[in-house]
């Protein structure tokens, strides 16, 4: 994978502090869009108008925020207490290396052995090696956010990163924008903010755009790891094609859209899987309940170890998702 694409997975951007990733995505998108702007909440909206007379408005949403942490307290010795920004499993955090926007690094530790059986975020702290509170406060303020410090890499045709959720959706939109020469419809590429804390960016951007069709690009689970490690059940597995969402906890995708997406995938021989997920939702949750209701769906990339510091997906599934999305945007008639 080209370096410029890998960089998408490295840019800092926990919910509410998406400035860096937004600037980078704008850089990648600006030559493919008529205009790019950030709205009040910070959503990056890139618009590409179509020349077609019958053009409709399609909103494609991928969230650019990643899960992270927020500093709530700096103690006298210079250790940091924190809370989650987005959904975190406490056990995934023990001994993780973390990094702040300003480059300060630290390591997550737990209070003592007794707290391990029922570990909570409250039992964890970050050691940045500061001498004391005053030394820490020179670099860190209450409210500062931080994320895991891991590098993305490619191996066996798979991609591994702490932020596949949902930079993989952002990458899909970038690849689509590069390949989509003459779209039949006006495409709103929306890189949303604050998805991980409750699909908030999608809510306000969908209100402003009021599209005819909304499609979210996001990760879903992968039902192929040993043991029953995921709390929710999912009907997809990594490497078997793009996930066409039928239902999750936020949306029941209208049948005419599911049928249409499947018929396009079959016609163009794009590998796909029918996706039913029992826990979790994506930006389509907010989009489809906007104003008087908007037809919306989600295309998913099956991903192992979602919300861990090493999420893994298959690059072939990403490719399949881009292909299906391209066919959708090139369709003369929408089922709307």
């Amino acid at each position: 994978m080209e370096k410029k694409y890998l960089k998408i997975f490295k840019e800092f951007g926990p919910s509410g502090d998406e400035e860096n990733i937004s600037n980078y995505l704008k850089e990648l998108m600006k030559s493919f869009a008529d205009k790019c702007y950030n709205d009040v909440l910070g959503n990056l909206i890139c618009v590409k108008k179509s020349n077609s007379k019958n053009a409709r408005n399609i909103m494609l949403a991928a969230h650019m925020d990643q899960i992270g942490f927020i500093v709530t307290h700096i103690d006298k010795k210079g250790y940091l207490r924190f809370h989650s920004v987005g959904g975190h499993y406490p056990y995934n955090q023990v001994t993780q290396r973390v990094i702040f926007k300003n480059g300060i690094k630290g390591m997550i530790c737990y209070d003592n052995e007794e707290c391990l059986p029922k570990l909570k975020i409250d039992n964890l702290y970050v050691d940045i090696g500061a001498k004391n509170k005053e030394a820490a406060e020179k670099h860190i303020k209450i409210g500062d956010r931080f994320v895991w410090d891991t590098e993305p890499f490619e191996q066996f045709g798979n991609l591994c990163s702490m932020a596949l959720d949902d930079r993989i959706g952002c990458l899909i939109l970038i690849l689509l924008a590069e390949r989509l020469k003459a779209a039949k419809h006006n495409i709103y590429y929306v890189f949303t903010v604050q998805e991980e804390v409750g699909v908030r960016g999608a809510k306000t951007s969908a209100f402003a755009i009021e599209p005819d069709l909304g499609i979210a690009l996001d990760v879903t689970g992968s039902d192929d790891a040993p043991g029953n490690q995921t709390k929710c059940s999912v009907s997809c597995a990594m490497g078997k094609g793009t996930g066409i969402k039928i239902m999750d906890s936020g949306i029941i995708v209208p049948k005419q859209i599911v049928d249409w997406e499947i018929s396009l995938a079959e016609k163009h021989k794009i590998p796909y899987q029918r996706e039913v997920l029992t826990g979790g939702a994506t930006d389509s949750f907010a989009i489809h309940l906007t104003k008087k209701g908007i037809l919306a769906s989600t295309l998913s990339v099956p991903t192992r170890h979602v919300h861990s510091s090493s999420e893994i997906c298959s690059i072939a599934d990403v490719e399949a998702t881009v292909k299906l999305l391209k066919v959708i945007c090139e369709s003369e008639k929408l089922p709307v």
Partner: peptide, 14 residues
């Protein structure tokens, strides 16, 4: 409030 269960406050206004 910097962050609670239903808001993340915009850094400009903070």
């Amino acid at each position: 409030t910097i962050m609670d269960s239903n808001i993340i406050t915009n850094t400009k206004i903070l």
